[in-house]
Design a protein around this nucleic acid. Structure first.
Lengths: 181, 181
DNA sequence: TTAAAGTTTCAGTAATTTCTGAAACTTCGG
DNA sequence: CCGAAGTTTCAGAAATTACTGAAACTTTAA
């Protein structure tokens, strides 16, 4: 394989654990992403030099993340794997899956906790802090749920606006106010 | 310690590795967050039942993340540790730090890679995919850099709008167009 | 029904990450 | 300069996580 492409795949491996999976799965993900044609499990195993069993587990995991899909080629019994969509779709899936793993459990613990009555000063403070965290996580969750509803173009517009969006929000208020009159 | 509070701290420990650090550091972070008063390293060590050395490393790490700050109490030589700001501030710091670790290295690798000329079909495809990833990550980076410039209130407005922000963007266009005429 | 082609599982092993605790270091008052 | 109070470092041990490969399982075509 071309050395630049290989470098990319290896990099995905190194980043794997930071992205929420492990080295092997990172590599697999990178490889499938940049391969023009769908790959079989054996091809993956050979290309990355990892055991067939490991590839099988990796595929299961990548399917759980909804990042790859199976394809079949007529007259061929093997399963071929390809990315489950374009880059935006995949990024949203990673984002969503990570939210599920990194935010949801905490949110639910906090909800439980916040039903408690504080019985002293220290507890009151702790509960207040937890309330803050809860509110923040809830806002993020709410927002994340809306993200995929916008198309990629709109998301791009929004992101490119950056802090400029603040001005647009102000404008919105002005607009609405003048409409009120 | 109250069992609910303890549950929260332990939960932070369990989530620690998902949030980008490890169990101990997660616990420390949770504990400091909900403690009304700043804590010494020894208090942390006792409360969490972890070795003094481990606490020392954890503090260093949490300082690298800019999540805690040192405080001194007059006439006391010990160092006291407290959160480095309100919840929004801390969340932004985690977000930023994670971006540095999870996105930046990939972005720089992709930039390098994209200087290459493709020498065949497969490579052309791979480079196109990398370009997509590159563009996405660059957009995210750009956007993330703007985030802290908005105050918490504006961020809240934005987040609460959710997909509704799409409509505001449309409105912006309408507004600008009518101004053009 | 059989066997060939392919996939999954999982016990054991390897690799990695985290933690401990003792020794080294720092800082400060006297 | 000394020693007490405090902090940091780091080699080795413990805990966790990931990987292999062989056996079990599944599917399909003849």
């Amino acid at each position: 394989m071309n050395s630049k492409l290989e470098a990319f795949v290896m990099h995905c491996g190194e980043m794997g654990s930071r992205w929420g999976f492990n080295r092997t799965i990172g590599q697999m993900c990178g490889l499938i992403l940049i391969s023009k044609n769908p790959l079989t499990a054996n091809e993956i195993s050979d290309a990355l030099n990892i055991s067939r069993g490991n590839v099988s587990m990796g595929i299961k995991e990548l399917q759980a993340w909804r990042l790859i899909q199976v394809q079949h080629i007529p007259g061929d019994r093997k399963e071929y794997y390809a990315p489950a969509g374009d880059i935006w779709t995949l990024a949203l899936r990673v984002f969503e899956e990570r939210r599920k793993r990194e935010v949801d459990p905490t949110l639910s613990l906090l909800r439980d906790n916040l039903l408690t009555e504080p019985s002293n000063d220290a507890e009151l403070y702790a509960l207040e802090q937890m309330q803050q965290i809860h509110d923040l996580l809830e806002t993020i969750t709410h927002w994340a749920a809306e993200l995929p509803k916008m198309g990629p173009e709109k998301l791009n517009t929004l992101m490119r606006l950056g802090a400029g969006v603040g001005k647009v929000l102000d404008m919105k208020d002005k607009f609405l106010n003048s409409a009120d009159k």
